[in-house]
Design a protein around this nucleic acid. Structure first.
Lengths: 150, 150
DNA sequence: AGTCATTATGTGTATTTACACCTATGTTGC
DNA sequence: GCAACATAGGTGTAAATACACATAATGACT
């Protein structure tokens, strides 16, 4: 064993950005998923459906870019949504590409999830204060931007 | 298909707290893991080792509480750390409980990871500004607290 | 001592995450 | 036309996440 780690060396670790953002991510995710449980949609799945709805038709790589998600991660996230037939992945113009589209069922499920999502979002805004929440969202985007430079 | 989802209904979705916090969580995690890659520690693993180091000896349930992590999630997160022999899980006083402790190797690995972690944390503080970062951490804790009331 | 609730933990299952690596297709420059 | 590069996507592997459910041990109450 090397020299013992002092308490002082560990003192600042609870302020770890990675730890705290992951921790907050876990609890927030649970709140949203609980709220949307009626639809069976997970938080990530809701986000995917929203972006697909916004684009109408979008390739996997573009969708991943818009979600700031690894392409292979997204590919796998599409699987349960395809299985539930909430969206379909069909051949694109280019023989390399595959495009994602909502099915009617996906459209209906998203439609049902939207008010549940909104209610949750608004409740958080009310409890935290709209300005503070806007500030938080801004800071989250700021830290995303900063990580580009690292 | 139910009535078409309007663009207006989707307009506020990109401000979803769940989406944005998960997104930020992904990019931040990648930065920390890249920085600590030499040690082979993932972000979560680093956090686990830190808390175990702080407690010296701690049961799985207490550890999960301190990490604000589902107990079963933590149980599974311990597996790769046990496999690498960075920590050991041994029988506790109570025959139900099992206590987690760092091994010498875990101690050394954590010792090696600490400066890498600190450098990353400080770089973010420098790029973002210490006050803004402190503010962000405070707001993350605030939103955690709020979700308790939901 | 025996019942019953509480506490501590593990397992099955499914999703989310991402790196390394691979194949197929399209594009560009000669 | 073809070689070299760029683009789009999939697979193997491993970790992180959490719910539902199961088991075992302890504590409390009669």
């Amino acid at each position: 064993m090397t020299k013992k780690i002092t308490r002082k060396e560990l003192a600042t670790c609870p302020d770890c950005v990675c730890f705290n953002i992951r921790k907050a991510s876990r609890v927030v995710t649970q709140v949203y998923e609980e709220a949307m449980s009626k639809t069976g949609l997970r938080g990530t799945q809701f986000s995917v459906l929203v972006v697909v709805a916004l684009f109408g038709s979008i390739t996997i790589t573009r969708l991943a870019e818009n979600l700031v998600m690894d392409r292979t991660t997204l590919s796998r996230n599409l699987k349960p949504l395809e299985k539930r037939q909430l969206l379909k992945v069909i051949a694109g113009a280019d023989r390399r590409t595959r495009v994602v589209q909502l099915t009617d069922s996906g459209h209906n499920t998203l439609k049902a999830a939207l008010p549940l999502w909104k209610k949750t979002q608004q409740k958080i805004a009310r409890l935290m204060g709209s300005e503070r929440l806007d500030n938080l969202l801004g800071e989250l985007r700021a830290i995303e931007k900063i990580t580009d430079q690292m």
